[in-house]
């Protein structure tokens, strides 16, 4: 469906992308993950033909984006980070404009009605876009990406700036789209990608640092062996106890406090669940555990682990 080969993009001296390659199969929902400034939007802008790469090719269904841009662009529905809405138009006027712009040949009225229904904007279709709420504007933007029923839909940070209820609605919508379309969405929120995507591509500093099925990434997170534990008691007494627990490689106190409990960061040996032995060891000495959390569930932690893995 989509093949991206060795994209390199430079802005003057700054390198935004240094050799991005991946391909996407038909029907996949891909999460494009990375911190701000990693090169997500740049990659998407190149795939959709908005900007050009210095090196590399993009094939959409076998069509190169620069060789035959009109055919390639017809196969993509794109929602940029900032939805490109003409504020003075009504929703229906805008969708009609996009319909004509994309040279659609589906039956117009029925198709626009369908699209409105899918993204749930039928009730505001005669209102001027300027007066809509942010959530509705975002959905009008998604609607415009669906016009012409393109096989590949690209959404750049589709949930940014929405309230929690709207975020859930948009995620459900993306999941529903995934039934019939190939979808790529970018996000910097790990849980969002976990919730809706089959596969994740994680990029950082213009390079892909991980590309795998969501289960694989989840497993990687699960394998994580770092914990933060709050233990009540004097630091000088607790620290040796923790260090002696079998399976603990490293343990160091953190600056965080919860009442009289001190936080410690603990790293365990691979394949050993240290939580039970740690509980028994501390209980025996009479130091209650006030809290325990697994580290590495945030995107930043994954980055650190992944980059460590690359370096190793």
């Amino acid at each position: 469906m989509l093949k991206v080969e060795n994209l390199v993009k430079k802005y003057g001296r700054a390198t935004a992308l240094s050799g991005i390659s991946f391909h996407v199969n038909k029907g996949e929902v891909i999460g494009f993950l990375g911190p701000n400034g990693a090169g997500k939007s740049t990659t998407m802008n190149i795939i959709t033909g908005y900007i050009s790469s210095n090196v590399g090719n993009v094939y959409i269904d076998g069509t190169e984006i620069l060789e035959n841009p009109e055919l390639a662009k017809k196969k993509i529905g794109y929602l940029p980070e900032q939805p490109p809405l003409y504020m003075e138009m009504t929703v229906l006027e805008y969708l009609n404009f996009v319909y004509e712009l994309r040279g659609c040949d589906l039956p117009r009225k029925a198709h626009l009605e369908d699209v409105c229904k899918v993204v749930k904007i039928s009730d505001v279709r005669d209102r001027v876009i300027r007066n809509l709420s942010k959530g509705y504007k975002q959905r009008v933007g998604i609607a415009s990406a669906l016009i012409g029923n393109p096989p590949l839909i690209i959404l750049d940070e589709p949930t940014i700036g929405l309230d929690p209820k709207q975020i859930i609605e948009v995620r459900n919508l993306i999941r529903a789209l995934g039934q019939s379309h190939t979808v790529i969405l970018s996000t910097h929120i790990l849980s969002e990608a976990q919730a809706v995507c089959d596969r994740m591509i994680i990029i950082d500093h213009g390079k892909i640092i991980a590309d795998g099925k969501t289960e694989e990434i989840n497993q990687f997170i699960k394998d994580n062996r770092r914990y933060k534990v709050f233990v009540s008691g004097a630091q000088s007494d607790v620290l040796p106890v923790l260090k002696k627990v079998s399976g603990v490689i490293a343990c160091e106190p953190l600056a965080e406090r919860d009442g009289d409990a001190v936080a410690y960061a603990i790293e365990a040996q691979k394949g050993i669940d240290i939580r039970k032995p740690m509980f028994h060891a501390l209980a025996e000495k009479g130091y209650p555990i006030m809290g325990l959390e697994a580290l590495g569930a945030s995107l930043e932690d994954i980055f650190i682990s992944l980059i460590d893995r690359e370096d190793a």
């Binding site: 662009k73 490109p84 996009v98 712009l101």
Partner: peptide, 14 residues
Amino acid sequence: KLRTEQLLLTSPVS
């Protein structure tokens, strides 16, 4: 300024 050119430039129009 309004970034709407992104719509035009990613549409099948030269």
